[in-house]
Structure formats: structure tokens, C-alpha cells
Computed example of a mutant assay.
Amino acid sequence: MSDTAFHRRQAEMLPSRPAPAGQTGAVGWMRANLFSSPFNILLTLISLFLLWSIIPPAFDWAFFDAEFVGTSRDDCVGGAGACWAWIDQRIDQFVYGFYPAESRWRVNLAVLLLIPALAWVLIEKAPGARYGRWFALFYPVIATLLLVGGLGLEEVTTDKFGGFMLNLVAGLAGIVLSLPIGILLALGRRSKLPVVRVVSVTFIEVIRGVPLITLLFVAIVILNLFLPQNVSLDQLARVMIMVTLFASAYIAEVIRGGLQAIPAGQYEAAQAMGLGYWKMMRLIILPQALKISIPGIVNTFIGLFKDTTLVIIIGLFDILGQARLLQTNPEWIGEVDHETYVLASVFFFVICFSMSRYSIGLEKRLDTSGR
């Protein structure tokens, strides 16, 4: 009998035993990650001390010592904690901005329809996805009609847009439009056609070399000089165009990195199968490049969503603008300097963290290294 067979036979005869208690479960995890060496033990103790110094006082300020009921700053004067009494009176302003109160059901409906539109695009094997993706394709038109008006709905000018609704509109529009434009720019930069390559490279380098705030000033002040006298673009539309173009340039570079990571054999194999350029890109190259580029693309989207706060420079008050506006309100001045920023931060964190977690899940789902 060989040694391998002998040891296998012995293993079959011996009863299986559980792993040592100190190597599994919470205790094993802490030993491996928090107390694996003297240096890690020191870092763990310092981290625990810092958390103990920060978290309890923060909870006392935000919850236990806070004021939740009141109608003006006088109800919060002298309190040791946060003043949240303004929320029940001003939360609509934070969410809807100056959108007419009688038409806010249109905003609610647009957000409600956004949930299935995103689900049919982002969730694999979602029920009814075959037809749901058509709904997702037409959702931007439906949302525009609901928010701006038309087809029997009263028109609402974009200067009434504000609060978190404005961030959501500008951010989603930029995300949806910048990805396909970025893909085309990335392909154009790698094109063998000199004119296409030069135009793509020039656009990308010019946009990436200029701060976004400068481009927004160009959109508001200078763009009118190049338009016919009888043509005028809505201010919010101009800002969304510039934000989209700005994000497209960065996404193009991210996707170009993914394209360069594809082995030359993939191109040669696709060409050997008789696939044309666009079929090769659509079926073979781009799916692999986009999978590689997921972290960079999502990082660009998160940055784009946070950059929507720059709409303040054209006189529109997003959620951050509403926070600043409330701080100057005579009824609450001097008592909500921190609280309004905290609430705005929570809104941004929820959206950006959700995008980050979805990208991690998508990477795991598309990972083929272990298959």
C-alpha cells in the first residue's frame, strides 16, 4: 500500500474534530485581525480609546441631550445638545427646495418610479426584466415630464428645483449620460482614424485640465455668446451638460485603462471569428473592459454626485444650499450651524455608500477568477 493511500485510510478511520475554539468565530477573528502582533495590539488599543473618546459624546450631542420639539431658536437656546426642532418645519425645504407644494406629488411619483427603473437595470434576474428595461429606457422622459410639466401638467421652471431633489436630478442625469459618452471617447482615443483620435484626445485633455467650477461659469456666462439671439438654454440644463461632459472625460480615461488591460489575443480571436469592429467591441472587448473598470467608474460617479453641490454658483439651492439658507433664517440663526450640515452629510452618505456597496457586489458577481 502506498503512503498516500495509507494516510488517506487513517484519515477516514479517525473521527473529525472541530477546530480549536480560539481559531474560529469572533475570538478567532479578533486574534487574527486585532491582536495578531504587539504592533497590532497597540493600534487596536489606540483605536478603541479614540472611539470611546468620540462616539459617546457624539451620541450625547446628537440624541440624548438634543432638542427635538420647538418652533424657533428660543426653544434650543442653552441646550447642551443638537437642535433638531427645525426638522419637522423645514424638512420639505430640504427635500423639495422651492418646488410648489401642490405639485410635490409629482416629485414623489418620479422617485417612486425610479425604484423599479433602477431595479430592472441593476438587479440580475429581476422579475419582468425583459419588459422592465424598456421602462427604464423611457424613464428619463417620464421623469422630465413629471418634474418640468407638459401633457396637461402645469409647468414648473427649474429655478424652483432645490434641496435633495436637485442633487438627485443633476446627479442621475450626469451618471446616465456620461457613461455612454465616456465609452465613445475611450474608443475614439484608441481609434486608428487620426481625426477621431485627435478630437477625442483634445476633448479629454482640455476637460480634465480645467476645474469643474470654471466649466460651470463658462456654461452660465460665455455659452450664451455662441448661441443665436433667439435661442436660450435653461440654466439647469447648461449645468447638467457641463457636469456630464466633465464626468465623461474622466470615465473615458478609466475605460481606456480597462481596454489596455485586455490581452491582444482577445482582439485577434474576435477578428479570427470574423467579427466586425463594433460587434467585437460590443460582444468581446467592452464587457471585459467595463468589468475591470467598475471601481474607477463608480468612483467617478460618486465624485460627480458630490459635485452637484456646485449648482449654488448659478443661484440654485441644493441640499447644501438649503442648509446654508436655513442658518441665516432669523427664526433659527445661531442654533443650527452644525445640525443642517450633519443632515446634508447623511443624505450624501446614504447615496454614495449605496453606490459603493453595489459596485462591490457587482465585482463579486462578475468575478470569474475562481471558476
Rank of each mutant, 00 (worst) to 15 (best):
L113A: 12
Q10H: 07
I204N: 02
T300N: 14
I175A: 09
N40A: 13
Y96D: 01
G150W: 08
M240H: 00
V141I: 09
D60N: 10
N108A: 03
A186H: 00
V95F: 11
I46A: 10
A270C: 00
A264P: 06
R106T: 08
Q229F: 07
A173M: 15
L304S: 04
A82S: 09
N108Y: 00
D65Q: 15
R197E: 15
F64H: 07
A119K: 03
A136W: 01
G315M: 03
L153H: 10
T144K: 11
Q93F: 12
D159L: 00
V111R: 02
T244H: 04
A5C: 13
F164N: 11
F349K: 04
L325P: 01
I294G: 02
E124W: 14
G132W: 01
E12Q: 04
S47G: 15
D234A: 06
T4E: 07
W52E: 10
I351W: 00
A261V: 06
I55T: 01
S36A: 15
S293Y: 13
G128R: 05
V121E: 07
S72C: 07
W120H: 14
Q89S: 12
I251T: 14
F64Y: 12
M273H: 11
Q260F: 05
N329H: 06
A110F: 11
M273Q: 03
F68C: 01
V342C: 12
G162Q: 09
L179D: 03
L225V: 10
H7L: 11
F64M: 11
L113I: 13
L14Y: 07
Q322K: 04
T309Y: 11
F6W: 08
E102I: 02
V121C: 14
G296T: 13
I142C: 02
T214H: 06
S37V: 06
Y131S: 08
Y99E: 04
R133V: 13
L42A: 08
V156W: 02
S37Q: 08
D92M: 08
P140H: 05
D75P: 01
A219I: 00
D74Q: 03
I284E: 15
A80S: 05
Q229W: 05
S16P: 15
D75A: 05
L290F: 11
F349L: 15
E124N: 10
I302G: 07
F98E: 13
D318N: 14
A237L: 13
F317P: 07
F59P: 03
S16G: 12
L320W: 11
F347L: 15
P127V: 10
R365F: 15
M355N: 01
V210Y: 00
P116C: 09
H338Q: 02
D88S: 10
E155V: 09
W52R: 14
V27A: 14
A19N: 04
A32T: 09
I302A: 12
I251E: 15
W84G: 00
L304E: 11
M240I: 15
Q235C: 00
G321V: 01
V69F: 10
V148A: 14
N299S: 15
G258F: 11
C352Y: 07
L316P: 03
F246A: 03
V156G: 09
L225C: 05
A219L: 05
S369R: 12
M281R: 02
Y96L: 14
K306R: 13
G70W: 10
